[in-house]
């Protein structure tokens, strides 16, 4: 298998930032390709629902 850790150090980073918007903003300032995900607790934290959603979306 190719070593993706070594690749990670050579490639351009493309980042999914989940949570603090500031982290995404600082990456944007560095002209890094980043998408901000405003993460929220899935299903308001309802575990049974989270398990079902995992399979359906």
């Amino acid at each position: 298998m190719e070593d993706k850790v070594e690749d990670l150090l050579q490639e351009e980073l493309v980042i999914i930032n989940m949570g603090l918007r500031g982290f995404a903003e600082s990456l944007e300032q560095q002209e890094v390709e980043v998408v901000q995900v405003d993460w929220i607790p899935p299903a308001g934290g309802d575990q049974e629902m989270i398990d079902i959603l995992e399979k359906l979306m």
Binding site: K4, D7, L8, E11, L13, V14, I15, I16, N17, M18, G19, L20, F23, A24, L27, E33, V35, Q36, V37, D38, W39, I40, P42, M57
Partner: peptide, 21 residues
């Protein structure tokens, strides 16, 4: 965009996820 999948749909070639959750 609220989930990792939402993010992946926007950036299918992403190589790093930053988590502050």
């Amino acid at each position: 965009l609220h989930t990792l999948n939402d993010g992946l749909a926007k950036k299918p070639h992403a190589n790093l996820a930053v988590l502050t959750i």
